[in-house]
Amino acid sequence: MRKFVVVAAAALVLAGCGTGSDQGGRALTVFAAASLTESFTALEKEFEAGHPGVDVRLNFAGSSALAQQLANDAAADVFASADTANMEKVEALLAAPAVVFATNKLTIVTPPGNPAKITGLADLGKEGVTTVVCAPQVPCGAASKKAADAAGVTLRPASEEQDVKAVLTKVRAGEADAGLVYVSDAKAAGDGVTAVGFPEADKAVNDYPIAVLKSAPQADLAGEFVALVRGADGQAELARAGFSAP
């Protein structure tokens, strides 16, 4: 009996962690890539203003983590991924094929003021320049490699980081002369870094697909949210955050 109580209590705690309560109107659950944090948070307010009684719940994380959660039966209405590979992992769970709603390009970032005088991708292969990039195993690293190959540059990174945030941390601390991140990330970092664009970035454009899930509890609202993202207001918000139109 005592054991049962403990187990039951543990189960309740775990359940509480997983889902919120459903009181007060309808809730729309959106799984979105972490790089969409600023723009989707702005769109959440707009959507809720246009749909009284509806609560939009945003779940931001790495695209692969979100895809994994969906594969493990997490309840969601909309999934917005930072790459097509992770969207393809959950293809069978989608109500309709995903559509690309934004693209993101790479940019070079340097500490404020660009003390090492970086002007293009070729500088990142030079002796004496400390470069930090994403590891090739993760999407931003794969894109970096693609861009470098297109430019005919061999990168000589001092470190291959796990994600864009780690690259930004090193650059912001002044421990790297240059790093490769997405334009949207550079924008979010504000004055902490200086962005230096380069033409080869066009060779490694990253597509952001969005889709409604087959099992969406709020399928109609989900469709309307996707329409908002793809519409004029959504695109303006995304452009503000540094994304390009598809």
Partner: peptide, 9 residues
């Protein structure tokens, strides 16, 4: 380690 030393094979 990952914060101070980075990550390179």
């Amino acid at each position: 380690t990952i914060t101070f030393a980075g990550s390179l094979e």
